[in-house]
């Protein structure tokens, strides 16, 4: 018999730069274990997930994390009064900090989460990559934070061209000479502030792994994928599961050493010599999670189980050669739905 459960989920923006909310919900909907009532938590009134039939039972609008965690928690507790949320799964990078520092407050009210610790969350930040690589003995591209033109002249001593010029939060450009570095430095620092990160350009194929850690060092699931086609925003619109034992070994080793808790995505570059370089760790389930579900590892379901405190047996296999192909699809909505969400802050389709 399926367990009745209420799950609140964010990240419903299934646009051309999609959030993971909708695929996470699909995983839960397809679960044999749960009969779930899905509560959508939306920051914006046009997040597509809100309007897709059969995905969300009821959507509530919530304030941005930038308003402060008190405001956000207050709203969630208000929703909790009505809905009795059992598990909450946040899916946006920008909100994770707020939910991580708020997880005790949520737990006190009976809302369970399954998130990394603040320490795990912070040490994998982009500006800390070199230290992270050293600490966990993982190859990372040489990188250096710079704050002035003066530093650009000295880059030749440490880097070969081309190199990557990256922003603190987003943006990355390839530069072939110091003039281009200056150019990108100006652009990036104006947008994201200092420091600007200079990173060795590692040539190779990008491979990604989606993984789930139980917080005790065990890897509950891991599926590697190679992007087959990338949009102009750098997002995969097609990908395929691959058999890559080395990549899986790196993942299980990292999870065992960091005792990672929750979903994650490792972005790596595999060179022609067969070396793997860690580029970035996303501290949450990625938007392509439905591929993992399709390949036999329902990670959203497993994450909910762990949030409920149940022991979960690790997945031992996945299907190789499963593909995902993203597509866009126009739905028909009505102004009355938009009205309900905009004025009352809630919508039931």
């Amino acid at each position: 018999m399926k367990t009745k459960i209420t799950i609140a989920i964010t990240g419903l923006n299934n646009t051309d730069n999609p959030g993971p909310g909708v695929p996470v919900i699909r995983g839960i909907r397809e679960s044999e274990a749960f009969d779930a009532r899905i509560i959508g938590l939306a920051y914006e009134n046009l997040e597509p997930g809100i309007y897709i039939p059969g995905i969300i039972d009821k959507t509530y609008q919530i304030p941005y994390p930038s308003a402060g965690s008190d405001e956000l928690m207050q709203r969630i507790f208000q929703i909790h009064e009505l809905e009795h949320i059992d598990v909450l799964i946040p899916n946006f990078d920008a909100e994770l900090f707020t939910f991580i520092i708020g997880k005790e407050r949520l737990a006190e009210k009976g809302i369970r989460t399954f998130l990394p610790t603040l320490q795990q969350f912070e040490e994998r930040e982009k500006t800390n990559l070199p230290e992270y690589g050293e600490k966990y003995k993982i190859k990372v591209p040489n990188s250096k934070a710079i704050t002035s033109y003066h530093d650009i002249n000295n880059l030749r001593q440490e880097f070969d061209y081309p190199l990557l010029v990256k922003g603190k939060f987003y943006d990355a450009y390839l530069a072939y000479n110091p003039e281009q570095v200056i150019n990108h430095f100006n652009k990036i620092s104006a947008k994201w502030g200092l420091p600007v990160i200079i990173q060795e350009f590692v040539k190779g194929t990008e491979v990604n792994v989606i993984a789930l850690g139980d917080g005790n060092g065990n890897t509950i699931g891991a599926v590697p994928m190679r992007k087959q086609y990338i949009t102009d925003k750098g997002k995969a619109w097609g990908g395929i599961t691959v058999s890559d034992q080395k990549m899986l070994d790196i993942t299980t080793k990292l999870i065992s050493e960091t005792k990672w808790r929750g979903g994650m995505e490792l972005e790596m570059i595999k060179t022609s010599q067969g070396d793997y370089y860690l580029i970035e760790i996303n501290p949450r389930i990625p938007a392509w999670v439905y591929l993992a579900i399709g390949a036999g590892q329902n990670m959203p379901e497993a994450l909910v189980q762990m949030a409920l405190g149940k022991e979960v047996k690790p997945f031992t296999k996945y299907d190789i050669g499963k593909m995902f192909i993203r597509y866009s699809w126009d739905m028909i909505g009505d102004i009355s739905q938009f009205e309900q969400l905009s004025i009352n802050g809630e919508l039931e389709l």
Binding site: I335, F338, E339, S342, I343
Partner: peptide, 17 residues
Amino acid sequence: ISDSGFVFDANTGESYS
């Protein structure tokens, strides 16, 4: 205009509260 305070201007497609 609806009782909830939602205004929809069909001429322009804009909405207001």
